[in-house]
Design a protein around this nucleic acid. Sequence first.
DNA 1: TCCCAGGTCCTGA
DNA 2: TCAGGACATGGG
Length: 289
Amino acid sequence: MNITEKNNQIIIDGIKDFNVTHIFDCGQCFRWNKEDDGSYTGVVKNKVINVEQHDSTVIFNNITIDDYNMVKEYFDLDTDYAEIKSNVNTDEIMAEAIKFGSGIRILNQDEWEIMISFMISANNRIPMIKKVIENLSSCFGDYICNYRGRDYYSFPTAEQLSVVSVDKIQECKAGFRSPRLKAAAERFLTEKNIIYNIKNTSYDEGLAYLKTYSGIGDKVANCILLFSMKQFDTFPVDVWVRRVMQTLYVDKNTKDVDIQKFAERKFGKFSGYAQQYLFYYAREQGIGK
DNA sequence: TCCCAGGTCCTGA
DNA sequence: TCAGGACATGGG
């Protein structure tokens, strides 16, 4: 991997196991959008970043080399995905799923943003989840800049979200989840140290704590653990994963908890990665639909 | 019109 | 413990 800097961009040559479409369309993040030229633009913390890829060359636009550590952490560049794939590749189905989403990486996203984002995901569709998050950001977050003709805003902080009314949150189309979001914001203010420390605690402890929030059940808690707290031994089961598992691995009426147990026994500490390959494969191929 | 979406919560048995 | 319904919103 060779890293160079030009005017307001970081260029990485010889990158492996990295595909912008796989990364941004596999359902783990909601703030990245495809541009007409095939690149993706998104917001990370208070930066607007554009990512374009030409084979094994990836260009991060609108940031400088000072942000390289942030990019490296966010895009999980220090992790060896070849090793992950060889561990997850346990049968023909997984081989196919890995081939299909070969460039997936699990991003290291912010705990607070992921908590709120996946609370919004409950009984919702991905385009709608993205819309609600953009509404919340433009209404309550900070203006960052205009990039390629579009205005960008940071994800609202817990402070910002805690002081607005439930009605205002509902105006962002969060629906019945609105009071839960406000309550979570208020609670987060006094418990943020606990939340940011979950990545250092056990899976069981983190899961139990997260589920004490109204609006966070098993599925959402596991997504928060996987996508922002480095707990990779979890296998969140949603409608898509349920379908693909019931179609390809287990009996048709297997319950979600049992699907999760089955997968976590099968994939061990790589369960989260396996789940992402399967989710992307199932959703793009419409398996079980 | 009805059904459903990266579910969770509440209720009644 | 556990099935069943409610819940905002919008697209198909």
